[in-house]
Structure formats: structure tokens, C-alpha cells
Design a protein around this nucleic acid. Structure first.
Lengths: 220, 220
DNA sequence: GCAATCACTGAATGACTGTTCACTCATTAC
DNA sequence: GTAATGAGTGAACAGTCATTCAGTGATTGC
């Protein structure tokens, strides 16, 4: 439906190309699913709503994903990968010192591509329903563990020997989770900027030697 | 179906009382709803499931709540009141100093009556779906505001003039929210005790003069 | 040009769900 | 005792939804 027409100049260009590569359709459906979940919740996300939004017919989901469950699964995986890309980009910069990296990874949670009302709403939609939680955990766990490991390793460079860096890592992630939660519940107050300031204050309190006082401002 | 009727035509004392006071039935249904949402999510919480679990018939919900929406509404209100009772109990003790009160209110979030897998799961179930979020917010907002006001007023006793006590209050609530979230996702790691220790560490960092170092342990 | 293939369609199907209401029966008033 | 009351029942109903599949039409291979 939407574009990507065959570039055959000699055949009639009036009809839109109806067939598209598999990956294009899959992404098209995943994006429609995201929009739909954000707007109507998972239980309100019917096949008719998703396919209608994508401008396709009902049968298309079976064709590309077999079932609704598979589509929901693929959507969550897609979201996870987007989050991963966001923080991985940041740690790959080898010119940064551990303190800068830790700061950057923590702040990457507020990158507009992943920190926006639509995306956050979808995360909590999956998270909220018990029947999807196992499903959610299975998909998210490896992504979460990977990030926690990076966090913990960075922490070890910044705190005295003997500090419980796992607890520290958990607390940073916990604070970030709480900010996401409030961002969706009170979007006027917990804007992106406000959340970043809150995180900055938190990091300053936890790593006074590195981000304490007015140091924070220079790193932002 | 699974009646309590005992079916003996004219026998008297063995039949359970079939009628009960309105409040008993309402509570019975609300508790069945809580169990059901925790187990199956909101979309899996059908009238048949709720009434079946309560040991009553399908029509009973219409009788006491008119509709499913009203039942869901009443359930969330019930949960909010339980949370409110928990922290209000704590601040009413006038022998406590502000620092102790703030500590006690923050820790009241981990009272087993409100901090348990079932109850937390239900909170996030309501919270997770966009179509219920407005509904959730309407019910919860006044409860939340009331608690935040108390928190903020207590903060003002503990920090230097000019401190942004609203931001500080928000950050404490945010950290608590994050702990609840992790408690349901990683129940083995984020136990009640672990969450309380995390909160203690957080408060110690934010109020070093009052809960810093080993002070915290004495207040627990 | 023609047949084969492939992407896609959408009405039909069957399973499930919230609500209704005619009915049952325990309790209460007299 | 008898009648009136009203709590409680559950089959029936109307609506919704995911899935299916016979069919359409675009594209490709020859």
C-alpha cells in the first residue's frame, strides 16, 4: 500500500506495487502494532485494528507472523533491540573514560527514540499483564543482563574496593525504571529534561567523587 | 454450580446462608477480582472467572456493581485505600520526629499487606493498559497527591532552606516505584528485605545528616 | 504470450464474553 | 402458617475477536 513501487519505468506506473519484501511488511506491521498498543492497550489491539492501521487486510498477519502472539512477540523483540542499540552506541566510544561512559549509558535511557510516550506505553503494556509477563521476561532478560553487566563493570572503576557494585547497578536501573514509570503517568511533570535532571542528581549522590556538585553540569 | 445449597429439600441447618450483607458480597467479589487479575491479567479477568472464583453465579456482578467496569473501578479504589491506610497509620504517631516519620512512610511501601506479588501485579495491570490509564489516574491521583504532600512537608524539616523539596519528594517516590517494578519482574532478587535495604541506602545518600552511615541501621 | 508462482484479500467461521432477565428459594413481616 | 421481599442463579443473547481459506491479481519464468 505505501510506496516502494517497482521501479519498472516501462510498465504502467499507475497501480501501486501490491507486493513488498517480507522485511518491509513485517516492519510495517510491527510499527502499526506499536501505535495500536500505545493507543488502545494490548487487549484493545485487535488484528483488525493493526492491519487497518497498516493499510492491509486481516489475513496479512497470518502470512507474515502466523499468529497474533507471534506478532506481539516480534514487536517486543524489536523494541528491545532499539533500546540495546541506543546504549551500545554509547559504550563503543573508546575515547570515553568509565565515568563518562556510565553517565552516558544511564542518560541513554532518555534518548527520544526510546523515551517517548508511545514507546514507554508499549513497554508497560507488555509488562502490566500477568499473562504476558513471562513472555516479556523471556525476551527482555538477556538484554537486561547484558546492560547490567556493562553497568556493573563500569561501577567497579568508580567506587572503592569492596563496594557492592551489583546493588549499586540495580539501584541505578531501579531509579531509571521509576522515572520511565512516572514519565508515562505524569508526562507534564516528568518530561525528558526533568527525568535527566533527576538522574543527574541521583548519580551525583551515588558517585560524589565523579559527578558531585557542579561537576555534573559540565558532563551534561 | 458449586453451590452451597446442600440440596436437601426440607433440611434446615446444613444449608449455608445464601444471602449475605451487601458489603460482604462486594468485598468477596473484589478479592476474587484481585486474585484473578494477578493470575490472568485484566483482559483475562472475565466475569465467569471472577464469579467462579468467588463461588457465586454470573449475574451477581450486575447485582452489586452493575457492570464489569464498575467492579474494576471498585477494586482499584479498594487497593488505593489499603495503601493509604498503611502510611497514614504511620504518620499519626505524634511521638515521632520528622526524620523518623519520613523513614517510616517510605518504608511503609514495603508492608507485606501492600507489598506482595499479588497486589503489585494488580497495580501494574491497571497501570499497563492505556485504556485503563486515565481511569487509574483519576482514582489514584488524589491518593498520590496526599502522600506527596506529606512527604514534602517532612522533607522541609530535614534539608537546608532553598532545597527543591518537590524534586526530592518525587525522587523518593520514583525510587520506590522502581523497586515495586523490579519486585514483580525479579521476585527472587528484589525481595521485601532487599527492597528495604535499597531504600535505606537511597535515603542515606539523600539525607546524609539524618540517615547517613550506620545511623540507618538503628532506625530500621 | 502464457502458465506458474507469490503476495495479499476479506467474508465466513467458531470460540469466547458481558449483560440480561425470568426464575428459584431463603428470609422476613405479619 | 402465608405472603412479600429481594438475594442469587444461569441459560440465552448479542456482540467481538483471531483465524482460516478460497479467491484475486500482480509478478516472474520460460
Amino acid at each position: 500500500m505505501n510506496t516502494r513501487t517497482a521501479a519498472k519505468p516501462r510498465s504502467k506506473p499507475k497501480t501501486k506495487r501490491r507486493t513488498a519484501p517480507k522485511e518491509v511488511r513485517r516492519l510495517q506491521l510491527i510499527e502499526a502494532t506499536i501505535a495500536c498498543i500505545a493507543e488502545r492497550g494490548i487487549s484493545g489491539t485487535t488484528m483488525a485494528a493493526v492491519t487497518g492501521r497498516a493499510g492491509l487486510s486481516m489475513g496479512i498477519v497470518s502470512l507474515h507472523f502466523d499468529s497474533k502472539d507471534n506478532l506481539l512477540n516480534a514487536t517486543l523483540t524489536h523494541l528491545s533491540q532499539e533500546v540495546r542499540r541506543t546504549w551500545v552506541n554509547v559504550v563503543q566510544d573508546d575515547t570515553m573514560k568509565p565515568a563518562q561512559k556510565l553517565w552516558a549509558v544511564a542518560m541513554s535511557s532518555f534518548d527520544p527514540r526510546i523515551f517517548n510516550p508511545t514507546t514507554i506505553a508499549v513497554w508497560f503494556a507488555y509488562f502490566g499483564e500477568a499473562r504476558y509477563r513471562a513472555f516479556y521476561r523471556r525476551i527482555v532478560e538477556s538484554f537486561d543482563d547484558e546492560r547490567s553487566d556493562v553497568f556493573e563493570e563500569l561501577c567497579e572503576h568508580l567506587v572503592p574496593e569492596g563496594t557492592d557494585t551489583l546493588a549499586l547497578t540495580n539501584s541505578i536501573e531501579t531509579f531509571g525504571d521509576g522515572l520511565w514509570l512516572n514519565a508515562i503517568l505524569y508526562p507534564e511533570e516528568f518530561t525528558r529534561e526533568y527525568c535527566m535532571i533527576q538522574m543527574a542528581t541521583y548519580l551525583a549522590a551515588m558517585f560524589p567523587d565523579h559527578f558531585g556538585d557542579n561537576r555534573a553540569k559540565t558532563v551534561i
